[in-house]
C-alpha cells in the first residue's frame, strides 16, 4: 500500500479492511446482483442490499479514519514523509499559495478522506487509499492514454485534476514526444506528482497548482486536454465552465478526452451507482450524471462528441459483472 510506513497493528487492520472490501465487491456483490434481479425496485429493500450499502460506507471509514486509518497513519509518519529533501528542477512544479479553492470543493471530505486533499498529507493518504481499490486497475491510466493518443503526433497535452500524476505520467509514456502539463487545485497532489516524476521526464512534464476552470494557461495551445475522474467531482456550473475553458485551451483540431463515470443501464447496477454517490461522499456524482454532455460540448462549439464504455481491465464490461465496478466511460470531443 504505497509508501506509508505501517506499524504491525495498522498493517493488519488495513489488510483486514482490504480483504473485507474484496469480499464486498466480489462474492457479496455477485450474490446481491443475483438476488436483486427481478426483485421489486431493483432489490432496494433486500437485506443483502442493506448490508452491501453499510459495508461500502463503513469499510471506507475503517480504511481512512480512526487510529489505524490511513489519515492517522500518515500523520504519525508526517516528518518522514515531508522532510525528504526535494528541490524540483525549474519548471517542474509551480505552486500558487494565494489560490482559494471554491466552496464546493471544501464543503465535503470527498471519498470520506478526513481533511480531503487540501490537508498537508492529503495526496499521500489518497494514494494509499486508492492503491488496490476500485479506482486502481493496474493498467487503467495506461489503457486510457494509449487509446486516446493512438498513433497521432501529439506535441502538447494538458491533464486537468491530475491528482498525484497517474494520468499525466501515463500520457508522457503514450506520447513520447509530447510535453505534458498537469494541473490540480491541491498543492499536496502536485507536490507528490512532481516528487514522483522520474528524472528522465524532467523538462517534458510540468505540474501546476491551479483551479481547472481558471488555469491561466495559454489558449490555443494543446493537442489534447484530458482528465481522469475529475468531472464527477465538480458541480454542473463548474463542468460547464470547464467545457468553455477547454475550448479556449485547445488548438483547432485538438481533442478533449475525459475518463469518468456515466450511469449504467442495468437497474441493479444503477441502484448501486446512485447509492455509491452518497456513501462515498461524492456530492456531485449524480448531478454529473444528469448533464447532457453531448449538448454541452456542442453548445461550446465542439464536434464529434462521443461517450464510450471503458474497460479498465480485460473482461471488465462482462454481463453480469464479475465484481462491483464504477461505470467508466471515455468522453471525447473535437474542437473544429
Amino acid at each position: 500500500m504505497s509508501d506509508l510506513p505501517l506499524d504491525a497493528e495498522s498493517a493488519a487492520h488495513q489488510r483486514f479492511v482490504a480483504a473485507a472490501r474484496s469480499y464486498w465487491r466480489g462474492p457479496l456483490f455477485r450474490t446481491l446482483h443475483a438476488q436483486a434481479r427481478g426483485a421489486p425496485d431493483a432489490g432496494r429493500d433486500l437485506v443483502t442490499h442493506r448490508y452491501f450499502a453499510w459495508l461500502e460506507r463503513h469499510l471506507q471509514r475503517m480504511k481512512y479514519s480512526g487510529p489505524r486509518g490511513l489519515a492517522a497513519i500518515a500523520q504519525r509518519s508526517r516528518d518522514a514523509l515531508v522532510a525528504l529533501p526535494f528541490a524540483p528542477p525549474p519548471g517542474l512544479l509551480t505552486l500558487d499559495p494565494t489560490l482559494v479553492p471554491p466552496a464546493y470543493y471544501t464543503a465535503c471530505d470527498i471519498h470520506q478522506q478526513p481533511g480531503g486533499l487540501l490537508a498537508e498529507l492529503g495526496a499521500h493518504v489518497y494514494r494509499a487509499g486508492v492503491t488496490g481499490g476500485v479506482v486502481d486497475a493496474a493498467t487503467l491510466h495506461e489503457r486510457f492514454a494509449t487509446r486516446i493518443v493512438g498513433d497521432s503526433r501529439v506535441e502538447r497535452i494538458l491533464d486537468l485534476g491530475c491528482g498525484f500524476g497517474r494520468g499525466t505520467l501515463a500520457f508522457t509514456r503514450a506520447a513520447p514526444a509530447a510535453h505534458v502539463d498537469g494541473v490540480d487545485i491541491a498543492a499536496s497532489c502536485v507536490i507528490l506528482a512532481a516528487r514522483e516524476t522520474p528524472a528522465a521526464l524532467h523538462g517534458r512534464v510540468a505540474f501546476r497548482q491551479a483551479e481547472a476552470t481558471t488555469s491561466g494557461l495559454p489558449g490555443g495551445t494543446y493537442d489534447i486536454v484530458t482528465s481522469t475522474m475529475l468531472l464527477h467531482e465538480m458541480p454542473q456550473a463548474a463542468v460547464r465552465a470547464l467545457i468553455v475553458e477547454t475550448a479556449r485551451l485547445l488548438r483547432p483540431g485538438g481533442i478533449v478526452a475525459h475518463l469518468d463515470f456515466l450511469p449504467p443501464a442495468d437497474p441493479v447496477l444503477r441502484l448501486l451507482f446512485e447509492g455509491h454517490a452518497r456513501r462515498n461522499n461524492e456530492p456531485y456524482l449524480l448531478e454529473h450524471s444528469r448533464i447532457d454532455l453531448a449538448r454541452a460540448y456542442a453548445d461550446a462549439g465542439f464536434t464529434h462528441v462521443e461517450a464510450t464504455p471503458f474497460d479498465e481491465e480485460d473482461g471488465a464490461l462482462a454481463t453480469p459483472p464479475r465484481v462491483w465496478r464504477l461505470p467508466w466511460h471515455t468522453i471525447v470531443a473535437r474542437k473544429p
Binding site: 505552486l95 482559494v100 481533511g115 487540501l118 498537508e120
Partner: peptide, 21 residues
C-alpha cells in the same frame, strides 16, 4: 488538520496556510 502547503516541500517556500475547511 490543515498545514501550510509549503511544509511538504521541506520548507523551501513560504506559503501561508490555506483557509481551514
Amino acid at each position: 488538520m490543515i498545514f501550510p502547503t509549503a511544509a511538504a516541500l521541506g520548507g523551501t517556500r513560504g506559503a501561508p496556510a490555506l483557509p481551514a475547511m
